[in-house]
Amino acid sequence: MKQTIYISTLILLLLSSCKKEEVKLYDGGDRVQFSRLNIPNPPPYIDSLDFSFASKGNLENDTLFLPVDVTGRTANRDREFKVAAIPEESSAVEGIDFDFGKGIIKAGQFKGVFKLILRKTKDLETIRKKVSFKIVASADFQPGLSKQLKCKVAFFNFMVKPIDWDAKMLRFFGAYSKTKHRFILYQLGFPEINFAATAALEDPSRYIFSGVKFANFQLKLRSVLDDLNAGTLKPAADDPFTYPLKDENGLNVIFP
């Protein structure tokens, strides 16, 4: 009799494990935050960006596309997220120096972009303006990860000498001048240029190049400038320079 009780109890216990467990759905609301870099093992979110009009030719304004991503569920309609300036941390003024675009997460998407439109004003030739902003609640989204809600963009219209110029770039590009720096960026089509400490650290997607690449940049820049100065090559329609090219001190721009 005892055996029968034990066996029955065991069977009941076993069967009890077959009970369907309900899976709880996420109920934290849909949230949005600025994205980290979309690369394997991305570094922590970087909230500061620099932007220079100096390498953009005659462009009067430019748009920065800041990626955002959603925590939560997709929806079958376009949804809006909102961004607000932080005046106490900004020197730029909305409507004068910059404008915010509309933040939209398209239907069925987990990702979107926020557009920041920067205007090239006269002030930017001498000062660096800054706009700081953050994601705020909207009808569709709550602010997401607290560490990825803010962004600071500094923008200007002058060149900043790269820290590696004298140690690494000098042998390829010669003495520094802001005009030469602008010419380099304009001709190569880069927003910035950096020297890789070692060939292994080269990362063209972040404009970090090895010495071999710099040697080829030098060949190109020297040849193009020769031809532009001589009139053999006609400047492009958006070329902001006057040839023969002289720097801000009135000296001929020369590549060694």
């Binding site: 040697a215 080829n216 060949l219 190109k220 040849s223 193009v224 031809d227 053999t232």
Partner: peptide
């Protein structure tokens, strides 16, 4: 071999 930019001149 990897060839660089053209030699300048007309």
């Amino acid at each position: 071999l990897l060839f660089g930019y053209r030699a300048s001149g007309d």
